[in-house]
Amino acid sequence: MPGNCSPVSLPLATRLTRLLARLVLYAVLWSVLAGLDGRSWIIGLPAVSAAACCSLFFAPQRLCPLSPLGLLRFIPFFLNLSFWGGCDVMRRALSPVMPLNPGLVRYQVSLPEAPQQVLLLNCISLLPGTISADFSGQCLTIHTIDRDMPVWSTVHLLERRVAAVFGLRLAGGAP
């Protein structure tokens, strides 16, 4: 939950680094939004610092470092899957007989931290044939549009990829 933990207990150096990283990130974002006009920083500077402070305030206490290589490999994987997700829905919606066979599937998530889980949950909703419907404890309820699809193996593959984004290796195996 955001805000439940205040970042007070972290050492000062870590907090400063995190603040600095956020300042740089939001400054880049501001220059994307407002262009390279120097005068825009009259508003930009307060906005960037407010956004950075707000973001730091809500940041989770434990760090979840990203792995750049994993992220780079995740993007094409995700784009490909979400494209096929769109095509799949288009086929079902336009076909006269509407091949639907929906149902609920449960899946045990082994990702440990909230940001990773949320990334998984959000990506599942864009995959072909699945949306994440509920999540409590480590148990994920998935609504699938076609029960004959290999839901479990797709989600498992996605989970390993998400873990790779955060530089983790999951112990893979059968359910």
Binding site: I43, G44, A47
Partner: peptide
């Protein structure tokens, strides 16, 4: 309970919304 997805969404969007508000005022 709001659940993890909403919590993360808020955490992500609140700073971005501050930026966009500033941008709208500037533009």
């Amino acid at each position: 309970e709001p659940g993890p997805v909403l919590a993360t969404l808020v955490r992500l969007l609140a700073p971005l919304m501050i930026m966009v508000a500033g941008y709208l005022v500037w533009i």
